[in-house]
């Protein structure tokens, strides 16, 4: 580039930098606190006191783009939520859980309105699960749309509100890096009364705790197999388990209880020098097992394990079985 143009660009940068009036980091904090109601106290998970969009829309204003506000102006005064709204908003907020235990990429909370819209900027292309909680009466319809405009729906569903919120869960795929929009439509009972919260969690990072039903079904399945050395497994996530055994012939048996079906893949894999079991082992058998409420065991499967190897068992639950069914397995010498 010519020296003259170089100089002009350098001058532009220098002069414009001198003219920029930074609103300041503190103003950013005020904006964030006001917009999301996140208390910036030490280690607080997410203390919501007031959500701009939810409360502002409660009075029947049309949905608005929660995009940038002029940072050089003071925030306008918004109506305070009443104690019942605050209580439910707090319940929905607490339902989000601890982000240290279950990371999310974005979360927010507010008072349910008839027509709420949230633009989520800069969502990387990936698979996500949207958890939506609603505390209070009524139901809330949830729609997720791609991009910052248009009607390309990525997921939709309805969440039933309750005093002890159970999350509605929507699986979605963000096809490209960029925007998502979340629309929440509260019914007459929920609008202005219920509190909501939602969070986006990467599917690969989901750490569902095992449900009581899954744990109970795992116990039922283990009882079907009986005897020593039976391992119980819950289905909140797919598992790959290592079973280190001396070389020899074995009988493997599986049982599951609850809804849905489970697929088991058993491989024999080399044990590496540091004790790790290789993940590229040879498939010995694959079993798809339909679970029942009373529990059902497979027939014994004969397997042989070469020296210096171990078994790996990969179990995958279908949607009906996920975190509801439980399973158990045993390896016994043939």
């Amino acid at each position: 580039m010519s020296e003259h143009v170089d100089k002009l660009l350098t001058d532009l940068r220098t002069e414009a930098l001198g003219e920029v009036k930074a609103p300041g980091a503190e103003q950013a904090r005020r904006t964030v606190r006001r917009r999301r109601g996140i208390a910036a106290s030490a280690g607080t998970v997410l203390a919501v006191t007031l959500i701009l969009s939810g409360v502002a829309l409660a009075g029947g204003r049309p949905p608005h783009d929660p995009a940038p506000l002029a940072p050089t102006t003071e925030p306008s005064r918004l109506p305070d939520p009443d104690p019942q709204q605050l209580s439910r908003l707090d319940a929905a907020n607490r339902a989000l859980g601890d982000p240290e235990k279950q990371p999310w990429i974005m979360a927010t909370a507010g008072v349910v309105t008839a027509d709420y819209e949230n633009h989520v900027n800069d969502v990387p292309a990936d698979d996500y699960r949207l958890f939506v909680y609603c505390a209070g009466p009524g139901t809330v319809d949830v729609v997720v749309k791609a991009g910052d405009h248009g009607d390309d729906k990525l997921a939709a569903g309805t969440v039933t509100c309750s005093d002890d919120p159970v999350p509605g869960q929507l699986a979605l795929t963000q096809p490209v890096d960029g925007y998502l929009r979340v629309f929440l439509y509260g019914d007459e009972q929920a609008a202005g009364r219920a509190g909501f919260s939602f969070k986006f969690v990467r599917t690969a990072e989901i750490k569902d705790p095992p449900s009581r039903a899954s744990a109970a079904n795992a116990t039922t399945a283990a009882a079907l197999l009986g005897g020593p050395g039976v391992a119980k497994v819950t289905t909140e996530t797919d598992r790959t388990l290592d079973e280190r055994r001396p070389a020899g012939r074995y009988l493997a048996s599986f049982a599951c209880a609850g809804p849905g079906q489970l697929s088991f893949i058993i491989r024999s894999a080399r044990t590496l020098r540091d004790g790790t079991v290789a993940t590229d082992g040879q498939t010995q058998t694959a079993v798809t097992h339909v679970c029942t409420t009373a529990g059902k065991a497979t027939r014994d499967v004969a397997l042989s394990l070469p020296a210096g190897s171990a078994f790996t068992i990969t179990a995958e639950a279908d949607d009906a079985a996920r975190n509801r069914a439980g399973w158990a397995y045993a390896f016994r010498p043939a």
Binding site: V20, V32, P68, A70, P71
Partner: peptide, 14 residues
Amino acid sequence: QDIAQEAFCRALAR
């Protein structure tokens, strides 16, 4: 300025 501030707000929020 407005857009830069908004970007920093979004960074602060997460």
